Amino acid sequence: MTQYQAFRVELKDRVAHVAIHRPEKINAMNAAFWDEIVDIFRWVDETDEARVVVLSGDGQHFSAGIDLQLLAQAATQLGDDVGRNADRLRRQILKLQASFNAVDECCKPVIAAIQGYCLGGAIDLIAACDMRYCTLDAQFSIKEIDMGMAADVGTLQRLPRIIGDGMMRELAYTGRMVDGREAQAIGLVNRTYADRGELTDAVQALASEIAAKSPIAIRGTKQMIRYMRDHRVDDGLEYIATWNAAMLQSADLKVAMAAHMSKQKPDFAD
Rank of each mutant, 00 (worst) to 15 (best):
Q5L: 13
F7L: 00
R8E: 09
R8Q: 14
V9F: 13
E10I: 11
D13E: 15
V15A: 01
R22A: 15
P23N: 09
E24G: 00
N30G: 12
A31F: 09
A32G: 05
W34M: 00
W34D: 09
D39Y: 08
V44H: 11
T47Y: 11
A50P: 06
V52G: 07
V52M: 03
V52I: 07
V53G: 03
S56V: 06
S56A: 05
G57A: 08
D58K: 13
G59H: 05
G65V: 00
A74K: 13
A75T: 04
T76H: 09
L78I: 03
D81G: 00
V82Q: 02
L89S: 01
L89W: 01
R90L: 00
I93F: 15
L94N: 01
Q97Y: 06
Q97P: 07
V103A: 00
C106H: 10
C107D: 10
P109C: 05
P109E: 13
A113W: 08
A113V: 02
I114D: 05
Q115W: 07
Q115M: 11
G116W: 08
C118R: 03
G121T: 06
A122W: 05
I126R: 10
A128C: 02
C129R: 01
R132M: 05
Y133L: 00
Q139H: 14
K143Y: 13
M147N: 10
L159T: 09
L159R: 09
R161T: 14
R161S: 14
I162V: 02
I163P: 03
D165V: 13
E170D: 06
L171H: 04
Y173M: 12
Y173H: 14
G180S: 05
R181I: 14
Q184C: 00
G187A: 00
T192P: 06
Y193D: 07
L199G: 02
T200M: 04
Q204S: 09
A205V: 01
S208H: 12
A211K: 15
A212T: 12
P215W: 04
I216M: 09
A217D: 01
I218Q: 05
R219M: 04
R219L: 06
G220Q: 09
T221K: 08
Q223H: 14
H231T: 12
L237S: 03
E238A: 13
A241F: 11
N244T: 11
L248W: 12
M257L: 09
M257E: 13
A259Y: 01
A259D: 11
F268E: 08
D270M: 13
